[in-house]
């Protein structure tokens, strides 16, 4: 039977070996981090952004690298997902961006701080995270392409980039996207192109009580979106997009 002395030896030797291995692995990890995390791209702005991220307690609601709180979206790939213009607009006036939805505190960041945070998030997005976050692997099952009744025009790859980054944050198309504003399926059948473009310039000019914020869109982007949205026709009878959800 195990003696107390034997038990103590097991504890001391086991702990010593594991801790030694852990320290060695830590050295090795720190040697590899620069290459794996694109450390060369960490400029002054990124570093300022990182400290602003900490002192603003962003992890109190969001996750980054999957770490933080679970009240607001995961931001590791936000630069790629939403693009800089959306992030800037969000940081400038968070409460106008998702009207009537979960609220983010308005920190009153100035232009430089916003630039720093965007630079930080851009850098985070370039890190090699061993595959995190994984692409949704059941998405194809959720929205079968054949059943959605959408035109090839609305296929994700054919959409303007700004649509996939900004519009989709609040609106859905083909059952994919946000739930803040109305779905955009068939929007071209409801409004013509000049109306849509006027709307995109400033929603409240067209409809005073609109909750949609005026977004930082360039003339080119508005033209591009106007062309795209005005061509989204209602699905043919019998293939309602509703059945796809």
């Amino acid at each position: 039977m195990l003696s107390k002395k034997g038990a103590r030896a097991f504890f001391v030797i086991g702990t010593g070996l594991c801790f030694g291995a852990f320290v060695l692995l830590t050295f090795d990890t720190f040697n590899r981090i620069p290459a794996q995390t694109n450390q060369a791209a960490m400029d002054e702005s990124v570093i300022r952004g990182k400290h602003l991220w900490d002192t603003s307690n962003c992890m109190g609601c969001h996750t980054l690298l999957g770490e933080g709180a679970y009240y607001a979206p995961e931001l590791t790939k936000v630069y790629e997902r939403r693009g800089p213009a959306f992030i800037e607009a969000m940081l400038r006036d968070p409460e106008s961006m998702y009207p009537g939805k979960r609220r983010m505190q308005n920190y009153g960041f100035d232009d430089r701080q916003i630039g720093d945070l965007v630079a930080f998030l851009q850098w985070i997005g370039t890190m090699d995270l061993n595959g995190f976050p994984a692409e949704p692997d059941l998405g194809a099952v959720a929205v079968p392409a054949a059943a959605s009744g959408s035109s090839p025009l609305a296929a994700t790859g054919n959409r303007p980039q700004v649509f996939n980054q900004m519009c989709i944050a609040c609106h859905s198309l083909d059952g994919q996207g946000g739930v803040v504003g109305p779905a955009l399926d068939g929007v071209g059948g409801r409004f013509d192109r000049p109306y849509i473009e006027r709307w995109l310039h400033d929603p409240t000019e067209v409809k005073a009580d609109s909750k949609m914020p005026k977004l930082p869109l360039s003339e080119n982007q508005i033209t591009e979106l106007g062309a795209f949205l005005s061509q989204l026709r209602p699905a043919a009878a019998g293939t309602s997009t509703e059945t796809a959800r």
Binding site: A72, P73, E74, Y98, K101, R102, P133, A134, E135, P136, D137, L138, G139, V141, A142, I168, A169, S172, Q176, G177, G178, V179, V180
Partner: peptide, 11 residues
């Protein structure tokens, strides 16, 4: 819903 089917976070 979110991680495997790609639904929007807020939804």
């Amino acid at each position: 819903l979110e991680r495997r089917m790609g639904m929007d976070f807020l939804a």
